[in-house]
Each structure stands twice: as C-alpha cells, then as structure tokens.
C-alpha cells in the first residue's frame, strides 16, 4: 500500500508552546489511522497542519504527494473541525450544498444521499440552530464528505455523540475505508481506538508510539490500550525520547 500522508519532524510552536514537536508519521492509503491522546496533546494542531490551515514552524509533511500547505490538495481532502463549524442560520441541506459548491459543486442527488446517510432526512430543512448536538455533528460529517474526498481528516468526530450514533459513525468510517478513502481520526476515547487499523499515541506534541492496537499492547506488555498508553508515556519521560 502506498503512503498518502507522511510527515518528517513536523513542528508547530505558538510562542513558547510546542503544540506539535517533531512528529514522524506515515499513513497508508485506505486505512483508518487513529490519533490518540489527551486534550492538549497536539492532535488538533497536527490535523490542521495536514489540512494546510497552519504553516509548520519546522519539518515538513507531504499529503497526497504534495508538500503542505498547498491549496491544490484540498479538492480531495475532507476536513471535519472539532467545533461544529456550520452556518447556524442555514438548513442542514443548505449547509451541505454550500460546502459542496465550495468543492466544485455537487448534484442535488448527492446532497440527498448524504442526508440519508447521516440519518437526517426528516430534519433536512431544519435550521442548524434548532438541532441537537448529535445532529449537528452528523451534519458536520456530511459537509466533510460531500465531495467524496480521498483523504478524510476528522478531528474528534464522535465527541458528545451518543453511543448508538458512535457505533454508526464507526461503521460508516469502515465503509468509507473499504471504498478506498483514507481516514485520520483523532480521539481521546481509548475504546474507539480498537476500531482503527493503526494508531498513533500522542502526548505533549510528540508521537509516543505507532502501530496496530494489538502491536501496541504487546510492545507495552499491557492488557488494555489505556495501560499501554500510560506505559509509553512513562517510557517517553524516562528516556527523554519517545
């Protein structure tokens, strides 16, 4: 499998804060890559670097074969920010259609298809302002998918989502990966990580470890991912190197 996202020593500093502090990672086409770590570990900054919303302070990243930031990749990238980032005074359908237009225009049919997919057919013409948190999250996901991107960058897509919907989201992510898309999904919920093909543990702007869930458990000699994370974090502190 070829590599679709590759970073080498990428860094982003905000003044004295080292939000991302030298990350080397590689994501292969068609896999679901989970970025796992607590709040403030640099997951969001890393994703924003990959989208090209931030310019790296150092190091570099290649996404879809081009050095970021590069506007040219964005037609093939779907980005779901952590905040809902929707137009509150537009309807679900209008929001999805608008972001479709921004990505070069999509058919009415495609918009309807997405509305059905995120199970919002009965609320399609409701203003986003009137929706619950979970419905907004689903609308936001639909907006990120509207142009059938090859690469999806989802920043905590399941935060605040009820368990039933979370399962539906993950089934759908798997479906997208089977259809050839690549997904990078950040989360701070360990049990979600089991559903990723490969994982990256992030802490304090660094990548502690990378591998499949079972790999990571084995390497750490731990029974659960949570335990594995803690072990890696401790090792990282002891050795000074991740």
């Amino acid at each position: 499998m070829d590599v679709i996202v590759e970073t080498s020593g990428i860094r982003k500093h905000f003044g004295p804060v080292r939000a991302v502090d030298g990350v080397d990672m590689a994501v292969r086409t068609g896999e679901i890559y989970g970025l796992l770590g607590p709040n403030g570990s640099g997951k969001t900054t890393l994703i924003r670097l990959l989208v090209g919303l931030l310019r790296p302070s150092g190091g570099s990243a290649r996404v879809l074969g081009r050095a970021v930031p590069d506007k040219a990749i964005l037609a093939q990238v779907g980005y779901m920010p952590q905040a809902n980032a929707l137009y509150e005074d537009l309807t679900v359908r209008e929001n999805i259609a608008f972001f479709g237009e921004m990505c070069g225009g999509v058919s009415r049919h495609r918009v309807d298809e997405l509305i059905a997919l995120v199970d919002l057919s009965d609320r399609a013409d409701s203003l986003v302002r009137t929706l619950s948190g979970g419905m907004r999250q689903r609308t936001s996901l639909a907006c990120a998918l509207v142009h059938k991107p090859r690469l999806l960058l989802l920043d905590e897509p399941t935060v605040g989502v009820d368990p039933q919907l979370r399962v539906a989201f993950w089934d759908y992510f798997r479906q997208l990966a089977r259809d050839g898309a690549t997904l990078i999904v950040s989360s701070h919920v360990m049990d979600e990580a089991e559903r990723c093909d490969r994982l990256g543990f992030m802490r304090q702007g660094r990548l502690l470890a990378e591998g499949t869930a079972s790999d990571l458990r084995e390497k750490a000699g731990a029974d659960t991912l949570e335990e594995a994370f803690i072990r890696f974090a401790e090792r990282g502190l002891e050795g000074g190197q991740p």
Binding site: K71, A85, F99, M102, G104
Partner: peptide, 14 residues
C-alpha cells in the same frame, strides 16, 4: 468565531 471560516479555508475556495 463559529470556525466556518476555518472550514471554508480548508476547501479549495481562495
């Protein structure tokens, strides 16, 4: 404030 600008800038829109 609603981060739609960020989302807009993450599309091909210049």
């Amino acid at each position: 404030a609603q981060a739609t600008m960020e989302r807009l800038l993450a599309t091909p829109a210049s």
